[in-house]
């Protein structure tokens, strides 16, 4: 037996083992399952209506046209208004930016206070806040309408900003509290000995250390608020409708012919912001989630 191999060095691995084929096979099937609708949408949005009527939804466009995208962005009609989705886009931006900044600013300070400046009843306070996350939104819709009316914010973009800020609070506070709890307590003590106060420690010690968790919070809030439909349709008036509501109004209009290519383009346009966020920050997102999960 001359060809006996003495085991030495790294153990050789077969590339096409049964496990690998199973593993990659499953992954490819699942990936295709998720990618296929996206493919259909992109392809359809680049076709003209005559080509769509032929009915080959999987075939690539014979003649590429960007007209549906232009129409979706600038010309599609909702009711008597024919400015396309662009108005909804800017409305969404106007709602999104203050909501994200406000909710994260408040929740991070909340989480920091709950993690590091325990006061009498802080645990009870935290529990109540978390329970808030489990109350279905539907229960609060009507009371909120009344509250906003009394505050004079009903039908106003700022009313919606307030609603988003409040509803983001439980989960964001939990996120930040868990992250700040994982920061060694001695660091906080050292800063106190060094004479830093509540805000000094927050801004100069905690904030610079917590970029990953802020990225996670931004992603959660941007996607959550951007994708919101319910609050947008209830608490604003048509002129301020966010993009999602406008998309619905374009796609679900019952009059006239259904322009599938325009609908697809409009949907893709609406989904673009969360998509870009995910692609741009995927790595930081995973790191932040993992960092927050160390201690609870």
């Amino acid at each position: 037996m001359a060809d006996v191999i003495t085991p030495r060095g790294p153990k050789p691995r077969r590339r096409f083992s049964r496990t690998n084929i199973m593993l990659y096979g499953t992954l490819i099937v699942v990936a295709a399952y998720y990618a296929l609708p996206l493919y259909v949408m992109i392809v359809t949005s680049l076709k003209g209506m005559p080509e769509i009527r032929i009915g080959n939804i999987f075939s690539p466009p014979v003649e590429i046209t960007y007209q549906p995208w232009v129409k979706a962005w600038a010309e599609a009609c909702t009711g008597i208004n024919c400015e396309g989705l662009s108005r909804g886009f800017w409305n969404s931006v106007k709602i999104l930016i203050p909501s994200v900044i406000l909710s994260i600013a408040i929740a991070s300070v909340n989480g920091y206070a709950l993690a590091n400046w325990k006061f009498k009843g802080s645990e009870v306070f935290f529990t109540i806040l978390i329970v808030g996350a489990f109350i279905p939104y539907q229960v609060m819709l009507y009371p909120l309408v009344i509250i906003l009316r009394e505050l004079g914010l009903y039908g106003n973009v700022w009313g919606l900003v307030l609603v988003h800020t409040v509803f983001g609070m439980p989960i964001l506070t939990l996120l930040f509290r868990n992250y700040f709890t994982s920061v060694p307590e001695e660091l906080f003590k050292a800063a106190r000995v060094d004479g830093a106060g509540f805000w000094g420690i927050y801004f100069r010690i905690m904030l610079p250390m917590s970029l990953p968790i802020f990225v996670v919070a931004i992603i959660l809030q941007v996607t959550g608020i951007w994708n919101d439909f319910l609050f947008g349709v209830i608490y604003t008036k048509p002129a301020d409708y966010p993009m999602t509501v406008q998309l619905n109004n374009i796609v679900n209009s019952v009059q006239g012919i259904k322009e599938y290519n325009v609908n697809m383009a409009a949907t893709l346009l609406t989904g673009l912001v969360p998509l870009i966020i995910y692609f741009a920050s995927g790595k930081l997102f995973v790191r932040g989630i993992a960092a927050g999960a160390v201690k609870g």
């Binding site: 060694p184 004479g195 830093a196 250390m209």
Partner: peptide, 20 residues
């Protein structure tokens, strides 16, 4: 008094240096 007002300096087991 606050820790900073007591005229003390403290050294911790985990060093507790500000990482950034």
């Amino acid at each position: 008094e606050e820790p900073s007002g007591r005229g003390i300096g403290m050294v911790f087991q985990s060093y507790a240096l500000y990482p950034q």
